[in-house]
Nucleic acid binder design. Sequence first.
DNA 1: ATATTAAACGACATTGGTGTCGTTTTCAAT
DNA 2: ATTGAAAACGACACCAATGTCGTTTAATAT
Lengths: 207, 207
Amino acid sequence: MSPKVSEAYKKEKKIDLLRAAKRVFINKGYTHATMQDVMDESGMSRGGLYSYFNHIDHLFMEVLQFEDQEDILFFEPSDEYPLWTQLTEWLRLQQKNIEGINNSLVRAKAEFFLTSNYARDKENYPYITERYDNIKNAIKGFIQKGIKQGEFQPILDPEHIVLYFISFIDGLMLDTFQLGSQKTDVKVQLTAFQFSLKAMLLPVGEK
Amino acid sequence: MSPKVSEAYKKEKKIDLLRAAKRVFINKGYTHATMQDVMDESGMSRGGLYSYFNHIDHLFMEVLQFEDQEDILFFEPSDEYPLWTQLTEWLRLQQKNIEGINNSLVRAKAEFFLTSNYARDKENYPYITERYDNIKNAIKGFIQKGIKQGEFQPILDPEHIVLYFISFIDGLMLDTFQLGSQKTDVKVQLTAFQFSLKAMLLPVGEK
DNA sequence: ATATTAAACGACATTGGTGTCGTTTTCAAT
DNA sequence: ATTGAAAACGACACCAATGTCGTTTAATAT
């Protein structure tokens, strides 16, 4: 009856595997990563690995969830600083983020979203859509808070600004991954974007 | 000595194959397309196909070149209309373009750029970089012409505006491919983008 | 110590695709 | 018609990766 090891042990082991898998996906991307790679990286045997994850898409999706928790938190508005300041701060952070894109899952994610049948089956796996909605709502909430506080006086529908926001960031990531950060000049693009945002949001107290 | 068929015949045959391949890549993307698919679609045998293209990356790159000729032409400025009018016209065209993204090579291209070793080997295959530079220069030339003619009075460095331009369009395409055009609301995003451009370029005679 | 149980192992059959190569077909020159 | 060249064919050997399953190992309860 009694299991050989504790639940905690299995949880730990699984997290080890996820970490190893993440390293593999960062190095090789999604398409070229194999279960064998994860076995090698983690030291786990074939049968062992398959007892935790029955195929690589499953594994990748678990890595994503493991990762995602952090991302949304970015757009929790704080009351300490003006929202516009928080926004520019966020953009500054993104610069570092995107410049270091080769050590992130960005490439693997893009590949996964483009190629995996799981990712592309919106009916049964609404993951991508939900993800998009989550980040959209986080940013929209942020802007709406700014409106309510009288800090922003947007010229365009906030919803539209948000969509535009996301497209730009996604495009910048994609291009930077492909061409390198000095080619795409991440910093100046983010400056141009900040300029656009200012023209759209008209934050008070900004010249 | 004499070849069995004319040069013209071989050229024709090759174009047939490229067309078939293009259909395959539009339907299946890059990663999931196989030489077998192209054989089926074109009716050509295995050996025959391989005598034209020795592997699928080669085939894809030829499809791209075949396709690319059109793309750059978009940004040949005409003297008939104000450049700003041409720009808004171009954006209007892009809307249709991006909304019909499922019948284009956009997905396959993105996959190829992300995953193919040929695409990612910048040293030996500078194709991507050249492509980016070409489109960049086309748009930059367009803007500079506007400056010279006194039609644009940009607030930011035109180079930066162009980089920003490309990122946004790429991001919009990617997101739209993944989520569908009603989800990303292509039209309003392009409107927002137009607004940004206006704020950056300050076209004369536009309120 | 011993028994029990499931975690971990790794050999194996299977799959899906690749690229080659000897053969067949077909066209055009004679 | 006959013949020679090369285009088109398709069987085949090969490879890389998958997922399974019977066996081994090791932690815990007794």
